[in-house]
């Protein structure tokens, strides 16, 4: 390096040198495959042979495929149920957990453990919970209470929420920790001032806690939306042979992509669906950021 450079310039060069490593990594491992997926989606390709360009054929096939529309609506159902339920639950738990002094650490650990547990193992345990009598404990409990046995995973209407429940449960620990951190970060002087002014608990929650948590809420909404839109492990492990049944009732987009790519070896169809998923994620994230930032 020539001596004519200023210290500031030299610093910038070093900074860029260090940054180059992750940037190159991201370009090679993230951006390039993403861009490549766009081009593959216009071809017919079985992973091994030559790609043949087919234009928008894959997208037209998707449009005409009734299963794709079921899958798409399932994906949005996971999102529409998963995000509000998990956000509400985790906020309530975090709000009260923050006020608990006795056994706080232990309780927090209890909520966090599912997040650390392998999704596969957990999915299988829940799969057995949901079985009919004589082995499913939920149905056995219902039977004791004199309630009719429920289909759960063997019902076209109950299967999706049944699969979603362990997914929400598993993600709860993470959301609670972030909420608690957010709540703790609110300056105590605000609360003290409110106390002096004689504000009630509800008012404090509405006027101070929730507005102050806005960045936390934005972050969690975006992260959990992406998570629910990409749900896979639970469905793959809780449905018979990972098919997302019964009658496609639980099949999400990512599972459909996986099946197209690695069971039917139709990479074009699979990447076309990833492009759809990418677009949905992009639009939803932009909308959420706009709405919540106001």
């Amino acid at each position: 390096m020539s001596k004519s450079r200023t210290i500031a310039q030299r610093r910038a060069i070093w900074a860029w040198l260090f940054l180059a490593v992750p940037i190159i990594y991201f370009i090679l491992v993230r951006f390039y495959p993403t861009l490549d997926a766009f081009s593959i989606s216009f071809t017919e390709w079985n992973i091994v042979g030559e790609k043949t360009f087919v234009g928008f054929d894959n997208y037209v096939r998707l449009w005409d495929d009734p299963v794709f529309w079921i899958v798409l609506s399932n994906t949005f159902e996971y999102l529409a149920l998963g995000v509000p339920i998990s956000m509400l639950l985790s906020f309530i738990i975090a709000y009260y957990l923050d006020q608990v002094r006795f056994g706080h650490g232990f309780l927090r650990a209890c909520y966090f453990i599912p997040f650390l547990t392998t999704a596969v193992a957990m999915a299988w345990v829940w799969r057995w919970f949901y079985q009919p009598v004589p082995i499913g404990i939920i149905n056995m409990a219902l039977g004791q209470l004199g309630i009719v046995q429920q289909g759960f995973l063997r019902s076209t209407t109950q299967a999706l929420p049944a699969v979603l429940a362990p997914a929400i449960w598993a993600g709860l620990g993470f959301q609670i920790i972030i909420f608690i951190a957010g709540i703790r970060a609110i300056p105590t002087s605000y609360y003290e001032a409110a106390k002096i002014d004689g504000a009630g608990a509800w008012q404090v929650l509405r006027e101070i806690t929730l507005p102050q948590l806005r960045p936390t809420i934005i972050f969690l909404t975006v992260i959990s939306s992406i998570g629910f839109l990409r749900i896979f492990d639970q469905v793959y492990n809780m449905t018979q042979e990972g098919e997302g049944g019964p009658l496609n009732a639980t099949r999400p987009l990512v599972l459909n992509i996986y099946k197209a790519a690695f069971e039917d070896f139709e990479m074009g169809m699979a990447t076309a669906q990833t492009v759809v998923l990418f677009t949905i994620l992009l639009i939803i994230t932009i909308i959420q950021l706009r709405v919540l930032r106001k």
């Binding site: 289909g151 042979e241 049944g245 019964p246 069971e263 039917d264």
Partner: peptide, 20 residues
């Protein structure tokens, strides 16, 4: 032609009458 897909047609055939 595709064992998994053709199997699914039978699985769904029974599910349609049992579940719906």
């Amino acid at each position: 032609y595709s064992e998994a897909a053709q199997r699914k047609t039978v699985v769904d055939m029974l599910d349609r009458i049992v579940l719906t």
